[in-house]
Design a protein around this nucleic acid. Structure first.
Lengths: 209, 209
DNA sequence: AATTATTTTAATCAAATGATTAAAATATTG
DNA sequence: CAATATTTTAATCATTTGATTAAAATAATT
């Protein structure tokens, strides 16, 4: 009954279960994953899962919280840095995000699906996203557009475009690869290419009005 | 046992079940939907569902096939029309797609998730997508870039960008709305705006290299 | 080594869930 | 209207699945 007090190194059973849960939940979603699948993937007994995490829901919530954290992590720091220019920030986020997504390609789907299906539940956690999103970066861009007497674009357009260009290729990867006869290695290389291209495209959009 | 021969007008029980299944499946995915939910939503008895569609899987397959059809429908026609210019095609697809997505905002998630989780199963049906995707449109763009001595962009970039700009706002809608304090009506208006903006942005990309 | 605390297991429960069946209600046809 | 086919229902099955329990194995502490 006493659980564990000190979380120590924790490359233990608890972490193995989380690892397995993360892999399966992100790939198949909450409902499609059976607790027995997780147990098997983790190489442990089913009862362990409930012993450590109390329930499937609780375990899922932990995995989801960490995924959301990762989804927004980095962006906040970069966007809130007042010392860097728009260009630097742009290149920073794009590079950061594409690297992250290359390692965790299922993350956007996982997080966005949760937001979509349980918006109320996510409302609280989204505050963490909202803050950096309304950061200096977008203010800087707005000032830039006004200075150059361009029609300022709605922030939603700007965010949708940035996220769309960065994130969508990973969401649509299986389709895009198949259609364009691109294998995994080539796909990764193309994503690398986008690190340089996306900032150029975005700047083009800002100035195109 | 004899099923029905002539599908007639079919605003009947069968269609009611499909309607309910479509609504629930697209919103929550296969595993999260219970056959009893569908029955209740359709206002019929559970046994009816199995009587008409034999199983939950079969019903899902029908809904999914129709969703995929809708997802690619229109694009094929527009992209394969050799008489229209690149600009006309671009504006056509964007307009067409955004209208469709405004009515069925959950469609991309539904279809892309299926492709992602069951790529083998989808391989056959994807042929229908592959054909129009390699259509005259992309050839025209390539020729255009070469003629203007621009570095030609990989087709995957082009497709990812177009789909990203068109589709992503709907996938990320709950997040984007929340962050930007945008309500449903305003969101739809912004999507309308994008019908004009996206073609401009895309053309900017093609010429930016 | 003996005692206590922690971790792991096998067995089992109760509820949920996809599917079936046999019979009743309704519509169609001769 | 009688006979037949179709549609709908209620009741029930057999699995699956999340969770619990009590006991065994292992580790930690004195």
């Amino acid at each position: 009954m006493a659980k564990k007090i000190n979380k120590q190194i924790d490359n233990s059973t608890e972490e193995k279960i989380k690892e397995a849960a993360r892999k399966l939940f992100t790939k198949k979603g909450f409902a499609a994953v059976k607790t027995r699948d997780i147990a098997e993937e983790a190489g442990i007994n089913l009862a362990l899962l409930n012993y450590y995490f109390r329930s499937k829901e609780k375990l899922f919530d932990i995995i989801m919280a960490e995924a959301m954290q990762q989804f927004i992590q980095g962006v906040a720091l970069i966007f809130n840095d007042e010392k860097t220019s728009v260009d630097q920030k742009l290149e920073g986020v794009v590079e950061n995000y594409i690297d992250m997504l290359t390692h965790y390609p299922d993350l956007p789907f996982f997080v966005l699906n949760e937001i979509r299906t349980h918006p109320e539940k996510m409302a609280a956690k989204m505050e963490a996203i909202i803050q950096p999103a309304r950061s200096t970066f977008f203010k800087q861009i707005h000032e830039m557009m006004i200075a150059k007497k361009k029609e300022p674009i709605h922030t939603l357009h700007l965010m949708a475009n940035m996220m769309g260009l960065i994130v969508f290729p990973f969401i649509g990867a299986p389709l895009l690869k198949k259609i364009n006869n691109v294998n995994d290695k080539q796909f990764i290389e193309l994503m690398r290419e986008r690190k340089k291209l996306i900032p150029i495209w975005i700047k083009g959009m800002i100035m195109a009005m």
